[in-house]
Each structure stands twice: as structure tokens, then as C-alpha cells.
């Protein structure tokens, strides 16, 4: 049954106005996600069990002892804990808008400063991992999808396996084989370029598996579409058909996954930075979780949610570039 597509009432809205409307909708969505993330972060801090001032002092001291009223009053004043929760909430949100992520319980320093110092290497790691995962995924899918039964099955088994590999384990294997065994890469990768490849691969391989699963299904479906037959009937060879026609039709799900993958690789950095002894946000996060330094943890949560929102804007743009029909709809 065809969708009703009768004539439009009056003049069709100009594409500029239409795009503005769409962009407006996306903006509202982005704000809602960010507000939601901020609220989650606030609730997390407020729900730390026990009296918060006591807990904060204990975290600072690294030991649980009874505190005097004077000590507590100072902390309460410093963190504004005397105010009603709702006031604290709005203060927190107001702070976030001006870039104030709060003060670390443990380090007495602004969270924003701590994150800013460590953010660079982790973001480089994430972006490298996403780029690598695209290369691996496209090569693997183009070579194996829609081939003989055996090759196709192998292709999809490898996708599934890769997608299910725990990052810590993959990291250890890569470390043992390529750094300790073959000595091709440094064992402690520090922040060098040579040290970037193994950690990035550790994050990239499972992501490539995930994207491969989604892309492969679309790829095999596109291979059977009439426009692909048309291209073959024009005299196009198999490899060119795959590269010029099929690939473009099959990568949309992988593009979506890339937005999600940015968050996944950023948080995966926690594991990878531990395995490869790299500095970065991941190390900061593990330490903070261990010591229940919640402002740091929630600061990172908000950072990653923000990057997720930014990534999704890029994904939306990529979508329209890949499939211009979406703009028209």
C-alpha cells in the first residue's frame, strides 16, 4: 500500500525553513540529553550513602573517623550542602553552564582542570580507534560479504567473535604477542605514536565487529537490489559494484554506531589505559571510582555525554551526506 502522497497545500516550504525546523528539533533533543546527564550526575552525587560532609572528609583523609561539627560546617559551606537539594541542583546546573564541574573531594582542585589536563591523549586514542575500526570493518565486509556460503559464514563468525571480545583480554593478548613477544611496540606505551597503535587496536577490533555485523546484513541485502543488477548489466565488475554502489548503501548503521562508539571507546579507555599503562581520562576515572571521588566521576560522565551529543550531530550530518533522500523527506 502506498503512503498517501497527494499534493501539498499551498507552496511547499522552502528547504531552508525545513532544515531549520529539523535542526531545531535536534537541538531540543541534544539539550534534553545533556540536562538528563547533568541531572543523573547530580542525583549520583546526592545519593552517596551517609552524611555527605562526613563522607567527603573521610574520602579526603582516606580514613573513616568521627568528625567535629566545626569540620563538617566548613565542608558544608564549601560544597553548599546547607541549602535545600533543589537549590543545590540549580546551583549545580548553573555551574555546569559556566563550565564549573565542581571540586574534587580528594584533590581539592576543580574537576574541569583535572579533566582538561588528561583529556588530550584519551581523545586521540578514541578517534584513532574509531578510524581504525572503520578501515578494518570496510575491508573485511567488502571482501567477505555475499561470497560463497563458506566465506560469508566465516566473515560473520569473525564479526560476532570480535564484537564479543572483552577489551582487557584483547589488550593483554596484543601486549603479550606484539610488545612482549615480538618486541615491535613498547610495553609501556606512554603517549608516543608507536605506543598508540596497540591500545587503539584493542578498542577498534570489537567496535569493528559490532559495525561489521550491522553493515554485513545491509551489504548482502544491497547486493541483491535491482540497481546493483542494473550496474552489472552495464558491464561493471564485481569489485567496483561493491565499492561504488553497495558500500554506500550499507554503511548507515555503522555511521550510527560510530556515534555510540565514541562513548564506548572513551569509556573503554579505562580498561585499555590500565593494560597499556597510558595516562589519560581512564586512569583518572578508575582512581576516582576507587576513592568514591564523585565530582570527578560525574564530571567525566558529563564530558562523555556531551561528546556523545556532539558525535550525534556529526552522525546526522554524515547521514544526509550519504543518503541525500533523508534531507528531502
Amino acid at each position: 500500500m502506498s503512503a498517501p502522497s497527494a499534493q501539498s497545500l499551498g507552496a511547499a516550504p522552502r528547504s531552508g525553513a525545513r532544515l531549520a525546523r529539523l535542526a531545531g528539533g535536534k537541538l531540543v533533543n541534544a539539550v534534553v540529553v545533556l540536562l538528563g546527564a547533568a541531572t543523573t550526575a547530580f542525583v549520583a552525587q546526592a545519593s552517596l550513602p551517609g552524611d555527605r560532609a562526613t563522607v567527603i572528609l573521610n574520602i579526603r583523609a582516606g580514613q573513616a573517623i568521627r568528625r567535629t561539627a566545626a569540620e563538617l560546617a566548613q565542608i558544608n559551606a564549601e560544597y553548599g550542602l546547607n541549602h535545600p537539594l533543589i537549590v543545590q541542583y540549580f546551583d549545580y546546573i548553573r555551574g555546569l553552564v559556566t563550565g564549573n564541574l565542581g571540586v574534587s573531594y580528594q584533590q581539592y582542585r576543580p574537576v574541569a582542570q583535572i579533566i582538561a589536563e588528561q583529556m588530550g591523549p584519551t581523545i586521540v586514542l578514541s578517534l584513532t580507534a574509531i578510524a581504525l575500526s572503520w578501515v578494518i570493518m570496510i575491508l573485511w565486509v567488502t571482501l567477505t560479504a555475499g561470497r560463497s556460503a563458506r566465506v560469508s559464514a566465516l566473515g560473520s563468525v569473525v564479526d560476532t567473535t570480535a564484537a564479543g571480545l572483552p577489551q582487557y583480554w584483547l589488550g593483554i593478548i596484543l601486549l603479550l604477542v606484539f610488545a612482549l613477544g615480538l618486541g615491535w611496540f613498547p610495553v609501556i606505551s606512554g603517549n608516543s605514536i608507536a605506543g598508540l597503535l596497540l591500545p587503539a587496536l584493542t578498542l577498534a577490533i570489537p567496535l569493528a565487529g559490532f559495525m561489521g555485523q550491522a553493515t554485513r546484513a545491509e551489504f548482502e541485502n544491497s547486493l541483491e537490489q535491482p540497481f546493483v543488477i542494473s550496474a552489472r548489466m552495464r558491464g561493471m565488475g564485481d569489485f567496483e559494484v561493491r565499492l561504488r554502489h553497495v558500500l554506500r548503501h550499507s554503511i548507515l548503521p555503522a555511521v550510527t554506531l560510530s556515534g555510540w562508539g565514541l562513548g564506548a571507546t572513551l569509556s573503554g579507555a579505562v580498561v585499555v589505559e590500565t593494560v597499556f599503562s597510558r595516562s589519560g581520562i581512564g586512569q583518572v576515572l578508575v582512581t576516582a571510582v576507587n576513592s568514591q571521588d564523585l565530582p570527578v566521576v560525574t564530571g567525566i560522565v558529563i564530558l562523555i555525554a556531551t561528546l556523545y551529543v556532539v558525535a550525534n550531530v556529526l552522525v546526522d550530518i554524515a547521514y544526509v551526506l550519504i543518503d541525500p533522500r533523508l534531507k528531502a523527506q
Binding site: 569509556s267 568514591q292 562523555i304
Partner: peptide, 24 residues
């Protein structure tokens, strides 16, 4: 729907770490 989308914007490991940070 909004709640699902907000929670989905947190990667699995991050959300899990946040809970560990609160509960120990």
C-alpha cells in the same frame, strides 16, 4: 523515551562505574 535516550548516551562501562562509585 527521554529517560532511555539519556541513559543510552552513557556507555555501559561508564554507567556501571558510576554505580560502583556510589555504592562501593
Amino acid at each position: 523515551n527521554r529517560v532511555i535516550e539519556v541513559l543510552f548516551s552513557f556507555p555501559t562501562l561508564l554507567l556501571a562505574l558510576l554505580l560502583v562509585a556510589i555504592l562501593g
